[in-house]
Design a protein around this nucleic acid. Structure first.
Lengths: 239, 239
DNA sequence: CCAATAGTGTCTGTTAGACAATATACA
DNA sequence: TGTATATTGTCTAACAGACACTATTGG
């Protein structure tokens, strides 16, 4: 029984999709693009996660493809980017058997390319995350993929430093705590949070303070803008 | 700028590969198949992980494809199966731009289909895992994928019940501890291990004992043969 | 009795959580 | 001064790790 050659197999469609998250004004947001309204395309006018077919001629790898799509939409080229998983079956795309490679990215608000975003404003926009998705329906099975991204994100918040990748270059401990609380959807105890963070080498103080109508706060920066910290203990699950 | 239609894109090759692990006599083993020796195929005669092209006509989904390959090689149809990730680039397969969806499975020795295995004995065999791979070279980038599977597996041992899926239907706490120690590569403290396991509802005692030339041991079974337990705290990382 | 493995008890160290106290800015 | 936020201290509970101890089988 010899293996069939690739030519004998009908090749599935291959796409890459990226769930891109940011935190703005205490809200978690995901970047979506509106699909063209041509009737020859599936889900015309629907919102979808940035993505599309792998371009064999220009994408060196799946990750390069995901980074390209992220850069095209946000101008950010070195985000936190993690492979989320792949979804492939006969029905998810009406054009045929298709498999998508899903990634998710966390981008700091201050690195977003504003002119770039405005140029794309017509067909791309940030949507508030509510629960395990957004209000409007999404194209394809993107609601399922977005839900999986949120589940992964929220799960990893319990034992990693992922929320830090949503923050600008310099931030205070309180701002980091607020990022955690945003993703967790619950409040954390200040003292325990600070000792937890400071007992690692996640952040290093910079010689500046955040001024305000109150006691100034120490500013910190991340030691690494790419690699998260893994904590030995997870935050306690509330009953 | 309208999206190009799928017909305008050269479609990558799409494959699924499965790293199938078992524990035998204190050794962790991975199932490999030998590739055909025809010169029209890449890596003739090399060992590779079970896998191959997605068959659009018979595979309903990627996971169904992985389960099919697992069942064909082992006879096991309900293993612990987890998606590991995907690897895709222009160079990993000499036949062209290809993307593989990698899974890993943990199978109990007592569920392996022995006649089935013997029928395939010529082209499939279990290989001892040594370090982050096996002794012999592997086809394609399977060494990299196997290393990733082992890294994921060993990482999750620290905070999940994954080793339990390597055990037969009924087992003792000592056998479970040995499975942990096999994957961790280090000894665990008995008392702490037992408290950790018994404080969850991972296992339930059955009304039988394992007899031997010593004090009999309580036998247990898993509460769920599919879903792992996640512990709140990881085992401590040795310095 | 001994050997071997199963199972328990006791102490220590770490750290999350709760809560209180103190510190430092501006108005 | 008051208000707001930053930062620290104290106590408790949970649990992993180390280690010692007891229990139960066969020989």
């Amino acid at each position: 029984m010899s293996e069939r050659s690739p030519a004998n197999f009908e090749r599935p469609l291959v796409t890459v999709d990226v769930a891109i998250f940011r935190a703005l004004d205490g809200r978690l947001q995901v970047l979506l693009v509106r699909r063209g309204s041509g009737s020859d395309e599936p889900f015309p006018g629907h919102w979808a996660m940035p993505g599309g077919f792998v371009d064999v001629s220009c994408d060196a790898s799946l990750e390069a493809c995901a980074l390209r799509k992220l850069r095209e939409k946000t101008g950010v080229s070195t985000p936190y980017l993690e492979q989320l998983g792949s979804w492939g079956d006969a029905r998810r795309d009406p054009r045929g058997w298709s498999a998508t490679h899903a990634y998710f990215a966390l981008v700091p608000v201050d690195e977003l390319d504003v002119p770039h975003a405005e140029a794309n404003a017509a067909d791309a926009d940030w949507h508030d995350v509510e629960g395990d998705g957004i209000r409007e329906p999404l194209a394809f099975d993107h609601a399922r993929i977005l839900a999986a991204a949120l589940e992964r994100l929220r799960s990893k918040v319990e034992y990693t430093s992922l929320p830090a990748f949503l923050l600008p270059k310099e931030f205070t401990l309180s701002e980091l705590q607020k990022a955690y609380e945003l993703l967790l959807g619950r409040a954390l105890e200040k003292s325990a949070f600070r000792t937890r963070i400071l007992s690692t080498d996640l952040i290093v103080p910079v010689s500046r303070l955040r001024e305000g109508p109150n006691r100034p706060a120490q500013l910190y920066r991340l030691r690494s803008r790419k690699t998260p910290i893994y904590f030995q203990r997870a935050l306690s699950r509330p009953d």
